[in-house]
Design a protein around this nucleic acid. Sequence first.
DNA 1: TATCGTATCACAC
DNA 2: CTAACGGTGTGATACGATA
Length: 435
Amino acid sequence: MMSHSSRIGLVDCNNFYVSCEQAFNPRLRKRPVVVLSNNDGCVVSRSTEAKQAGIPMGVPYFQIRQQLYNINGVALSSNYPLYADMSSRAMRLIHEQIPQQEIYSIDECFVDLSEFAADQALVEAFRIRQRLLQCLSLPVSIGIGATKTQAKLASAMAKKPSGSSGVCDLSSPPGSGRHADMLLQSIRQVWGIGRRITERLEVNGVQTIGDLLGRPERWVRQHFGINLLRTVQELKGQPRLPFQTAPEPRKQIIASRSFGGAVYELNDLVEAVSTFVTRAGERLRTDHSLASVIEVYYRAKNLAAPDIIHSDGASIILAAATDDTRVLTGYAIEVLESIYQPGLKYKKAGIVLSGIVPANIRQPALSGVYPMTDGPSQAMRVMDRINQRYGRDTVKIASMGARDKAPWHMSCSRRSRRYTTALTELPVLSAHGMR
DNA sequence: TATCGTATCACAC
DNA sequence: CTAACGGTGTGATACGATA
């Protein structure tokens, strides 16, 4: 039997959030544009022009607001429904061409190109690139490597002006192709090597990938642990991270937000927490899972002593694992009431679902091995279908509240229209939001 | 001493 | 209102408690 060596592609949308906005609003093209995180907190996506102007990733918006204004730039609140919808369209297009796909994040996926020879793999990559540009106006970079880590690195190299044409192939064997180029790259660009490990490696005289691959694997394992060892082996072309077509169900689900305004009242917290539980419950049911533990937590300021950050949380183990938002909300409110302190200025709250088991476990296995479950809830299924069809929260639980504006709601003053997912936001007089 | 559970770190995006 | 700084998830490691 013929054994293939592995060849993996990584498709990565360039400046994804900004590119989505530009796809629907051509006036944003060729301009400094940034997209902001929740509550318009900090910069999470930048157009090329914004990068060139020196606006850093992750910087708080208020620090660059004036600068952006000076260069005739635009800041937008993030519009997740739009990005999620664009993402699923892009992923579908890629999947139609290469069925072996692992979706890694909202803007990235791996594709298994092992069946293709080197030259044909490049052809496939260019075709993906062209299709996404034509069909969705989304520019992407594609990296090809013998392993996922090589492919990620290759896509980073493909983004550089010198790496042009948007595709970079590192899957050729050492000594050929762009292998020499790879050895010259900074370790900081490698998937899995963040700020801290970069610092520690540099102290040890390791600056480039070539330096790193020159060190004995023993030394890497000893001083930096199993993760970096795996990374090193992947860079050498030995697969250590499996290609996973189907995603693993989550082991934990977190829903939390910083509040847009000042929150003091228990009632507002109940609304916020109920909303978080609702979102978490939706994700739980998407995974066909049940949760058996729920935790509620908050962060707050004491106005009498503003320097001290109060934070507290508590959790409760459910009598039976469930995916029922109503049950989960009941417990969550109970926990919230036990940790609520009057007089604090609440900044953020959240909930965590854990002890997650598959929903098809309806009976406890050998005693104590699995939590008791009461099975998936039919009512929830119906609710999900209604909300999917008629829009989020068409049916919801009462404790979420029904105000248009509440102090705990996020602020996002500069959000674009939900072009693809909200009929009510379609511009009436002009197609595609153009003028 | 081995193991367990939990907190913290580090990273990604 | 004159400060403001994101959310979700995983895995490894460190550490204290426990048997």
